[in-house]
Write a protein that binds this DNA or RNA. Structure first.
Lengths: 132, 132, 132, 132
DNA sequence: GTGGTCTAGACCACC
DNA sequence: GTGGTCTAGACCACG
């Protein structure tokens, strides 16, 4: 697993890490039961403080995506949450509105948005094959 | 124009205001030349500090979405920016990836995502007719 | 609100803080919407690092007991969670088993356990009147 | 004797083992003089490191619940401790407060708590008959 | 002044 | 080695 963070980005570092992990799960590059790099190891890769990575792991654990076992490591949860249809639905709606309004402001048509979406779908799963 | 803000949300209040204004422009509820409520007026509506609204207006002005005319008020810019294709493109890609991974994690199919997107498109423009 | 922590206790400090807050809510000494001391303030009272208090607040927020508003403070959640009957039920069962086995090992009868429980009930709500 | 451990639980594994043994003693499933499985045997059953089981046995021995006889094995102590009334009393009080506040937060009435407590009492002794 | 984030470093508990 | 906790101090974003 390879991650990229941008320390100057608009998202806090720990949220960038969270997002990349959830995207890796969504894209199939991380599967239930897989072991993640220790937060110390990953912190070296990313050149950030260990606590910063740990915070990302902790939040994802609270959300049900990860599980940790003392002394053994951190793993992708075996039973990924299908949480709170209502709340989840809201977030997805918001993500969709966000995508559309940005696209329209940039002058894109609906058909362009669909193209962007398809490209994103390919990106999400691309590394899977490449790494296999 | 009616706005909704959530003081406990993860986004800063001034960013929630910015987003709603840009979405209103994207959805056609605000058009080039339209006059916005003064930041004092809007701050009363939303029950937030006037400085918070002012900051949202200032940032949108810096981005080219709004124009202020001393003593007359704040208006939607006549020449909306088509800024920085590269940067814009990246943001849209990211928004698309974000939408897709959230949807996949919630167990939705690609066809579901399309439905969500269509609904979001209708939402974005719905108030236009209702308010007209 | 007055808290007591024991830095040498078997529970981590942040968990002692969490427990005292949830007990205060259960006992009615903290009500929905009440403002808590800022994490900095409380950290001075308890003579612990601010981050330690913040961690307690963060976890309670993730659990739905607290809500924070940037720049304004941290509040008892208006809609306290009635979460996950199953999981909650398990925890309560475990707390009950724990109480009983400790009591039996100490040689108490069932009737003694009931007395202890009644006393605990009075303790939980006692400060409410005293502080009022 | 059958034990259940949860490697992802919030309690360390050795404490989960300790608790289950003391609960078995409290519930009468283990009596003074009974022989326990060797720590190697038990470690295989539970799929944990032998050192982890040994630590649980050692701690219970230090507390006076178990006795080891070189070359013969580990046994439930003939004279179970009635230790430190004061400290024990405190712990029981705390367990009671913990039970009550969790129950109240889940919306249970006092009468519900009593039902839970009775059920826990039955659970604690149930396996006794089944295994006999 | 409030919360939000990050760092560097420490010590412990566990496996 | 792993995660778990804590500290002291820093800077920023927000209201």
């Amino acid at each position: 697993m390879q991650f990229q963070i941008n320390p100057a980005g608009e998202l806090p570092i720990y949220r960038q890490i969270m997002r990349q992990i959830t995207e890796a799960i969504a894209g199939g590059r991380l599967k239930a039961g897989d072991k993640l790099a220790s937060h110390r190891e990953l912190s070296e890769q990313l050149v950030v403080a260990p606590l910063t990575v740990k915070k990302a792991y902790d939040e994802l654990e609270a959300l049900g995506y990860l599980e940790t076992q003392r002394g053994r490591g951190t793993f992708v949860s075996e039973r990924l949450p299908k949480p709170d249809r209502a709340r989840q639905g809201e977030q997805i709606q918001e993500a969709a509105r966000n995508l559309l309004s940005q696209a329209y402001l940039a002058g894109l048509e609906y058909s362009d948005v669909l193209k962007v979406l398809e490209k994103a779908g390919r990106d999400l799963t691309a590394l899977k094959e490449r790494e296999a």
